[in-house]
Design a protein around this nucleic acid. Structure first.
Length: 145
RNA sequence: CCUGUUGUACGGGUGGUCGCUCGCGGGCGAGCUUUACUCGCCGGCGGGAGGAAAGUCCGGUCUCCAUAGGGCAGCAUGCCGGCUAACGGCCGGGGGGGUUCGCUCAAAGCGGAUUUCACGGAAAGUGCCACAGAAAAUAUACCGCCGGGGAUUCGUGUGAAAGCUCGACAUUCUCGGUAAGGGUGAAAAGGUGCGGUAAGAGCGCACCGCGGGCGGAGCGAUCCGCCUGGCAGGGUAAACCCCAUGCGGAGCAAGACCAAAUAGGGGAGGAGGGGCGGCCCGCUCCGUUCGACUCCCGGGUAGGUUGCUAGAGCUUGGCAGCAAUGCCUCGCCCAGAGGAAUGAUCGCCGCCUUUCGGGGUACAGAAACCGGCUUACAGUCCAGCAGGCCCA
RNA sequence: GGGCCGGUACCUCAGCGCAUAGAGGGGCCGAUUACUAAUCGGCUUGUUCUGGGUUGGAAUCCCAGCCGGUCCG
């Protein structure tokens, strides 16, 4: 493979960050994931589960809730992995892989969304391309206009 | 050299890109009159999972409840000595059991190697011991053996006979002696041998075992020797229990501070209630006028800071000790998150495997912190032991 | 961070030191019926979760482990 990573998803995202220098094999740059864009409160999780729109894939289920916000610190993201999913190593791996796949696409999502992700078992071993495809479908639903 | 096993050390390396979190110092901006301080943004440097972080089976540190106090109950531990902050852990020693080898004709015994043991008490008491067996815990009825007496039958002597005398390899009754033997059973009231006897028996003797005493060695468990007693008396305490020792209870969601939330709203009960745990005592706080506390209705907050990581810490060298470990010394700072970071992805190299396309690379993720134990684990290094092959 | 409970046939369970480890359901075979269901008769099945230990003897007692469930803060 001459250009092994990111066949389709990468180029237009990079344009939104003028300071980023383009690396030859780089994934999109300049997309942090600080605490301010994470869902941290139990009440926020509750609301997303009860009122959010459900989006189901093979590797995860997502609950998306449109929240009116005056400031533009959205969109926000949260993860829930139950104990029944597996041991701690597996829970962490599933969560981290989905988070990284979604992190680089976050600027495309409209800021008014709260998204809660429930990973599923296949996310532990699924190839990266499959994860990116599912993230594509999720982002398409919550895209910025 | 290969395989197995036990212990020990390690448990992929390197580079690119994009992130997360903590710390350090820098620039810019804002709050403030300025310093200080706080907040935001930007880029820089440094740290960032384990040997088991796991299971939560033990022990502690720490915090609050009284400076953690007395008794009962409960739980745990249980040969001896040492180590340790402590332990149910570790080290060393003793004793018992198993396996194996040697001495020996063999057994017993002795010695070596290896392995294993929750190894206080069954002469404080209670319970239980199926089946089999005469008997399963008080030892003694039964069978058997032996002796005395009687009856039957037969024989013998005498006699006319009845009967009497003596005897028997027989059958049976009765009185007594005895505990050697009695198919069993996991276990049978010391064992073996000789003597002894009507038959027998520690009845006597020798050796072994056991109890008691004395002496010696050892800190001690215990070992060795001598004297003495004919023998105490089954097993089971991972059955109840007894003895000794230890344990107060809860746990970082412990606990402390700040902010927010207010009204001590309405109603009913009410002399006791809380700290306090299974119970009692004791201590302490609040209350019986101004009403503690409990219940119901209604309402509010469930955010931040701290505890939070420099420690029974790691490491270099030396000394003491058989060792566990301790002491001295050189150097080091090594995660502190909080819906929970420590990652994702792409190369190259290493290792294993291959049907030459490739595939695989263990067990596993800190949650206040330490010391153990246990369990999981691809592969690699070293050492010990066992087995096999090759060379000399 | 703590407490408690369970694991026995394919399933649901009983059994509390001396059993050939049972019951119900299921399954299989046969009878009945034109056929099926129901009914009746017979048969089938255990590493008692695993590994040690105590005992003469363990599903049962003790220890360790594995798995599952549940409760409290």
């Amino acid at each position: 493979m001459a250009a092994p990573c990111l066949p389709g998803a990468e180029p237009r995202a990079a344009t939104s960050s003028p300071l980023a220098t383009r690396e030859p094999f780089g994934t999109p740059t300049n997309f942090g994931f600080p605490k301010s864009v994470r869902i941290l409160r139990t009440s926020d999780f509750r609301k997303a589960y009860n009122e959010g729109k459900r989006f189901t894939g093979r590797c995860f289920a997502a609950f998306c809730l449109r929240v009116p916000r005056e400031s533009d610190d959205g969109p926000r993201l949260g993860f829930t992995v139950p104990r029944a999913f597996g041991r701690a190593v597996l829970r962490n791996r599933a969560k981290r892989r989905i988070r990284e796949a979604l992190r680089v696409r976050l600027p495309e999502v409209a800021p008014e969304w709260d998204i809660v992700i429930n990973p599923r078992r296949p996310a532990i071993a699924a190839p990266v391309e499959e994860l990116r495809r599912e993230v594509d479908r999720l982002v398409a639903q919550c895209r910025k206009q």
